[in-house]
Every structure is written in structure tokens, then in C-alpha cells.
Amino acid sequence: MMELVLALLIWAAGWGLNAWLARSAVSETRAVQFLVPFIFGATLVLVWEMVVRGLNVPMVILPAPSVIAMRFASSLPILWVDFVQTFLKGALGGYVIGCAAAFLVAILVDRYDFLRRGLLPVGNFVAALPIVGTAPILVMWFGFDWQSKAAVVVVMVFFPMLVNTVAGLREASAMQRDLMQTYAASYGQAFFKLRLPAAMPFIFNGLKISTTLALIGAIVAEFFGSPTLGMGFRISTSVGQLALDMVWAEIVVAALAGSAFYGVVALVEKAVTFWHPSQRA
């Protein structure tokens, strides 16, 4: 009972603090902008801990954050090999291949109007489909190891990346293309000096969307078969053994990997497209 009261108090205190910070004179500063969501997150975790303890929620339903943290700390070697298998090999491998392939195809599509008319609607259509469902087929073709996961990721990221890149390559205005005409610039010169830089915001949009898709693809594909390691494998087997602390630990890894992956791409974007209005604000 004590813990439940404490949970309520923590919630009220955290929210009150945030409300005060949000209304205070320093609410526009960077530190506070960072602090408020942090307090909110921390409050949530504390309340979770107190409620689980107070109500004696069994481990097989919801483990307390402290239990998850302990499991995380004691399972670092396992989490690491799973991370290497699923993220570095499956997700990252497929991401690089898929995005590079989509980029090259996008240049072709952009060059030939007929391809653009024909492939773009198909690409838009496919981008909305539940592509992760191809996992059983690709596992059958490429085996249980990371290659099949990378293949799923390639298929998942290909179309969003293609559609974004093609849209980006058309972003340069008619006037800027005319300017290139007046310089009698070659296709290559106009491409590298005008259209590619102008396309960068779109290309990075595709790259950012793809980071999340890559991780989803790599994890879900493991539900259809994998060697005895990998984040998806660990999640599905641990769920079967009702070892939910391990499941949560893997989810923490997935969350950290996902946001770090996205963050790195976003940082590169900031450096490359510093000139774009969305980055200047």
C-alpha cells in the first residue's frame, strides 16, 4: 500500500515540477526543453516500479524496471552477440545494400521519363504494403542466418528510399535547370552540382524512415526462423519461457539501437543539409 501512495506522490511531484518548469521564464532554454521530457520519463519509470512492487505484480506479467536493469547488466555478453547478429549484420547490412540499390535505381528512373511514370506508382503502392510478410519466403531462400534478415531489410527499405530519392531529384526548380542550360552544363555537371545537392533533404528523409524499417525487418524476420541468437530470436524464445525481464532487456537494446541509428543519420543530415530552411530554424 505504501508503494502505491508513493507512486501517486511521485507522479504528482513530477507533473507539478514539469508544469512549473513549462510556465517558468526559462522554459525556452535548451536545458529545460531537455529536462522536462526527462523528468516525465523518469517519473513514469518510478511509478512503474512502485506499482509493480505495491501490487506484487508477478514477473511473468510485468517485471519492475529495477529487475529489467539488473537482467540487462548481468546479460551484457548475450545482448551484445544478439545486437551484432541482428543490428550490425542483419539490419545495417540490409540497410546499406537496400538504400544504395534504391539510390542507383532512382537515378535511372529519373533519367527515363517512361520509367518514372511506370515505376513510381508501383513503388508508392509497394511502399504501403506489409512487406515484412516476405520474411518466411526470404528465410526459405537465404537460410536462417543473417543473410535472410538482410534480404528482408533490403526489400523493406528499397521502395521508401526509391520514392523519396526520385522526388528529391525532381526538386530543383525549372529556373535552376534553365540556369544550368545557359551554362551549357553536361548531364553529369547538372547532376552533381545542382540536382544531387537539391535532393539531399529528400534522400535523408528516405534514409531516416529506413532506419526504423531496417530494425523492424531484421527483428520480425527472426520470428520466422533464425540461428540460436539475435534480438528477435531472444525475444520470441524468452517470451516462450516467460522470462520477461530478458524480453524487456532486448527491447531496451532495440530502443537504444533504433534511436541511436536514427540520431546518427539525423546528425549527418544536419551537417549535409545545413542550408535547408528546416535545419536553420
Partner: peptide
Amino acid sequence: VMDMSVMPWAIVSQTIPIIA
């Protein structure tokens, strides 16, 4: 206060595979 507390987490949620 809701904006400042919740919105960053909603945005971060888009970058992680919550389907796991």
C-alpha cells in the same frame, strides 16, 4: 506542459521498433 513532457517521447517512439 503536456507538449514539453510527452511530445519528445512520441517522436522518439517513431524511431524505435516498438513492434518488438
